[in-house]
Amino acid sequence: MSVTSGTKTENGVGETIRVVIHALIIALVIRTFLFQPFNIPSGSMKATLLVGDYLFVSKYSYGYSHYSIPFSPPLFSGRVFGSEPSRGDVVVFRLPKDNATDYIKRVIGLPGDRIQMKEGLLYINDAPVQRERLPDFVGEDPCGSDATARVKQWQETLPNGVTYKTLDCVDNGFYDNTNVYVVPPGHFFMMGDNRDNSTDSRVLSAVGYVPLENLVGRAQMIFFSIAEGEHAWQVWRWPAAVRWNRMFSIVR
């Protein structure tokens, strides 16, 4: 009896190990080739994305680079099955300046485009982007403080018809008036929707133009969202802290 019992125990342990290994392999395949979860730690994409949003990013949307692989080993250059993002896509990319930090912004400029800000208005190829005033954004302050705030809100419509909301913390902010940016071949110009509180391609020394190779994937869906300052692991606070209306919403 003791020998049989030991064999069953060994078989049970071995089966458990195999199940765990298979689960890890499946998770690795999903993360590398299909979807990767990200959370939003800053307000640069308000009001589209809020601090505390958790979202799935599709890894297959633009093909695969070595940044698609966990730990980003430099096994190859360029992209496999690569395709360019569309203007208006919300994209996770690896910061060109250090290759270790993930940013999320909206694609505004395509290769060859001329991008400029004049008095807070976006120009693409010397033409102003259509902008419509919306009711003020009221909520967790997008401008840097911890208080609730009321901020100007606009709806922009890009030349390809993509529409989204932008926030305007201050009139004639630091990057509301810029020189003309000419997007190099194979690169993209990224901007945050929270225009006065976003370090993006307008800041050439920090972000600049983003190579196609640095794209990680396209933001697709918010699967969880919790109020700024709350912690997802504190499940006993979920009834009041979770933003239930944002669950399973599509990122646009």
Rank of each mutant, 00 (worst) to 15 (best):
G63V: 06
Y64E: 00
V151G: 01
N177C: 08
A149G: 08
R243V: 02
F71V: 14
S5Y: 06
V90N: 00
D200W: 01
I108M: 13
V20P: 06
V91K: 01
A147Y: 08
L50M: 12
V151D: 01
L122F: 06
M117W: 09
W236G: 07
M191E: 00
N179Y: 09
H66R: 14
E10D: 09
V91L: 08
R133N: 11
T7P: 00
V207Q: 01
V151H: 01
R252M: 09
P70L: 10
P211N: 15
E228I: 04
K165S: 13
D126W: 06
E84D: 14
R94D: 02
Y209S: 10
S5L: 13
W244K: 13
E132W: 05
P184R: 06
G78K: 14
F33W: 04
Y123A: 11
D196G: 12
L134S: 08
E10G: 09
L95V: 04
P70E: 11
H187N: 15
G63Y: 01
L49K: 02
V29G: 11
V91F: 05
G139H: 02
G120S: 12
G120E: 09
V57I: 10
D89H: 04
T4L: 13
G78M: 14
M1N: 10
T199L: 05
F81N: 12
S58L: 09
V13H: 08
L122K: 00
G192K: 00
F56P: 01
D200P: 05
F93S: 02
I40W: 01
V13K: 12
F93D: 00
R79N: 00
P70D: 11
L167A: 04
W233D: 13
S5H: 10
F188N: 03
N177F: 09
F137C: 06
D53E: 09
N197R: 05
A241M: 05
L50D: 04
D89V: 08
Q116D: 11
N172G: 15
I25R: 07
V57K: 02
E15T: 15
N194P: 09
T4I: 11
G88I: 03
F76V: 15
Y54G: 06
P85C: 14
D200C: 08
V235G: 12
P159I: 02
N99L: 14
H66Y: 15
V129S: 06
A206T: 09
P159C: 11
V92H: 02
Y209L: 03
R243P: 01
I226G: 03
D171R: 06
F224P: 01
A206S: 12
H231F: 14
I69F: 05
G88H: 04
L75F: 13
P111S: 09
F248S: 12
D98V: 07
S249P: 04
G229S: 10
P41F: 07
E119K: 15
R133F: 08
I30P: 07
P96S: 10
M1T: 11
G192R: 03
T7G: 03
Y123I: 15
Y54F: 15
A147Q: 13
T148S: 13
P128Y: 08
T178E: 11
